[in-house]
């Protein structure tokens, strides 16, 4: 009875996650070992064939590289920008509350809408960005069609969408820092920057790790935004692992090959997360 209780509490969630996430991911591993096609009468076993094919697939190498660039750059910029905003807007007065809401608003807009709106905004012919830069005599840049600029532009929009989320979580973390820490440091005559460095940031570390963890996972799985804005182009310069597996799986019907890509992605995500959570849980225990 008592032994069963925890499982009663967790039952619904674990059952749903087990049936609709964990078991399907195991099945996709099975697919990845076959030349698996939806609906085909035979699914020939290929062993690790799909994985060796991936290693030699230049599209895969490019997608993996892009995914890592997007993740590292987005996470770094997001945490920096979000921290700056959080520090600037900690106080509970009406002004900072309203401003915080404004920054948070992009978080609730769907990625497809964000992608579509920014695609329009950046369009050299109708977009505000091109219009303004032309009015200033700078000429219009075709952001999403330049092989050099497309990836940074995607990263920018990803930051635009998620900076408010990082900010809110960090504001929460800042508020949880006991006031005594600051009082003690003030008694020692610490200056503002010193306070930041020796009191705020160390106390904020668990929250920073949490938000880094969430943002990293989200960036590694980036799909909708890229799919809507560039479709992975130009010339695969913004192709991510998920846009690639989507193309292989749903446009070319190579389910087994797409499943192999997804397992590589899954392993990358798990490795990165385990690495981050190790640090995270270490602090958790305190």
């Amino acid at each position: 009875m008592t032994k069963a209780r925890p499982w009663l509490f967790m039952g619904p969630s674990l059952l749903i996650l087990g049936v609709f996430v964990l078991w399907p991911i195991v099945q996709s591993l099975w697919y990845s070992l076959h030349d698996w096609t939806v609906g085909a009468a035979e699914q020939p076993w290929v062993g690790l064939g799909n994985y060796t094919k991936l290693v030699h697939d230049p599209q895969f190498q490019r997608a993996l590289g892009n995914t890592l660039i997007i993740t590292v750059a987005s996470t770094a910029v997001l945490v920096a920008v979000g921290l700056g905003l959080a520090l600037a807007l900690t106080s509970e007065n009406i002004v900072s509350r309203v401003i915080r809401s404004a920054f948070f608003f992009p978080t609730v807009i769907s990625l497809t809408t964000v992608g579509m709106v920014w695609k329009f905004l950046l369009d050299p012919d109708i977009g505000l960005v091109g219009g303004v830069s032309r009015a200033l005599g700078l000429g219009a840049v075709n952001w999403l069609q330049s092989t050099a600029l497309a990836l940074p532009t995607v990263i920018f929009v990803n930051v635009w969408k998620n900076a408010g989320f990082v900010m809110i979580v960090l504001v929460a973390g800042l508020k949880a820092i006991p006031g005594e820490y600051y009082e003690a440091a003030a008694l020692d005559g610490a200056r503002r920057l010193q306070l930041l460095r020796y009191v705020t940031l160390p106390a904020l570390r668990p929250t920073m790790l949490f938000v880094t963890f969430i943002v990293t996972i989200q960036s590694l799985q980036l799909f909708d935004l890229v799919y809507v804005m560039t479709g992975g182009g130009p010339l695969f310069h913004t192709d991510t692992l998920v846009t690639k597996l989507y193309r292989d799986g749903f446009a070319n019907y190579e389910t087994g090959y797409a499943a192999a890509t997804s397992w590589v992605l899954f392993i990358v995500v798990v490795l990165v997360s385990v690495f981050q959570l190790r640090i995270f849980r270490y602090n958790d225990a305190d």
Binding site: D125, N142, L144, G231, P234
Partner: peptide, 18 residues
């Protein structure tokens, strides 16, 4: 023509008289 257009983008440019 601009490079890298999708069909829908090319169509909008034409339908805008550009």
């Amino acid at each position: 023509s601009p490079v890298g257009l999708t069909g829908a983008e090319a169509d909008s440019i034409f339908s805008a008289g550009k």
